[in-house]
Nucleic acid binder design. Structure first.
Lengths: 208, 208
DNA sequence: GTCTATACTTGGATAGAC
DNA sequence: GTCTATCCAAGTATAGAC
């Protein structure tokens, strides 16, 4: 049961091919989660999208769950990097809310958060998956905490409520909004909330 | 393909038996969703818990999805009735937050919201399920909107933010918190948020 | 090391027995 | 009208070919 990627006996050709197959499968796993959810993300469904035989899922990842976790890793890395860029120019709570709204819209359009939501919900039905998913969410909460601390740590709000708790709540809200918006295909209620948040941010700035 | 419950040819005995089988299946569907999620809620898994043969799922409900929707209906009805009672004695924003916290704890303990979350996430993988689930969530949002309007409609917050938007956000937050708390089995971060909300409610009351 | 063909299991659904 | 025996599709996983 040799793991792929082991160093011995690898030709240039086979090494490159393996890596590409893995990449293809990971990409296909992401789109499968987006299109048919965790429940529909079988080895067959993913492999078909990837254009490779179904057995390769098990050869390269050992199980469907592992492949889905790899997909989650890929999306997390991609998004966190992007969030970092999006927040680079932020200099006020108002900017922060605006950036959050833009990022939310992107996430919804591209279905990035769907992947996360499906994995969280799906974790209930696959033994051992829960902790793995939980671990992969922590960076999102940490990122949010830091962004909040930077822009609002010194404000009246930051004085009353610990950043860690707020960050947890914001991520929860983000996931919930994604879930509801995705469910009925209407993002307007969610975007309305961002607009109100912008108003409150303006109000808060006026106080300081 | 006669639907059960048709009036003709029914003995007292058979009518009672059918209703009881349906009830048993619905209850089993709820616990199955709670224990193994949407992905694990197969006709066989549910029927085993109900102690009835698997084919009865299709006889009585036509499909697994229909049975799961019936389970969601049962939970929704039960919870909305209970929420109504819990809010009967509420006379201030502070009371409202306290009641919400109690209800949240109950929901988490009994796994009621898990059913909802699993159905929302699972809707992605079953064609046609989305709208059905969306329809069943609307009452939760309406209920929240009314509760908010009653206690905070006249406050500064109510003046700035439309109740409908807030209600949507609160339900989203509620679902997200349930999802995260359930995932890593730690409800403390969520409960901390309710504590902060209580403080803010107190603050708001001081202003009015 | 990489991948394909095949074994085995579980699940949805229904034809027909009671 | 109610339920059971059975069928077929879809899923996971691996033994063995290249």
């Amino acid at each position: 049961m040799a793991k792929p990627g082991s160093p011995s006996q690898l030709t240039e050709r086979s090494r490159g091919r393996s890596a590409e197959t893995r990449r293809t499968l990971v990409t296909a796993a992401v789109t499968t989660l987006q299109e048919v959810g965790f429940g529909g993300a079988s080895a067959r469904a993913i492999a078909e999208r990837a254009g490779v035989p179904q057995g390769l899922v098990f050869y390269h990842f050992g199980s469907v769950a592992n492949l889905l976790l790899a997909a989650l890793d890929a999306v997390s890395a991609e998004r966190l990097a992007h969030y970092g860029e999006a927040l680079a120019g932020v200099e006020s709570p108002q900017d922060l809310v605006a950036a959050a709204r833009d990022v939310f819209t992107e996430d919804l359009d591209a279905g990035y958060v769907t992947v996360l939501v499906e994995m969280i919900a799906g974790a209930s039905s696959t033994p051992g998956l829960g902790p793995e998913v939980a671990q992969r969410i922590r960076p999102w909460i940490d990122f949010t905490r830091e962004a909040f601390t930077r822009q609002l740590g010194g404000s009246p709000l930051g004085a009353v409520v610990p950043a860690a708790d707020v960050a947890y709540g914001i991520v929860a809200l983000y996931l919930g909004l994604e879930m509801l918006s995705h469910l009925d295909g209407d993002r307007r209620p969610a975007l309305a909330l961002f607009a109100h948040a912008a108003n409150l941010a303006r109000l808060l700035e006026a106080l300081t």
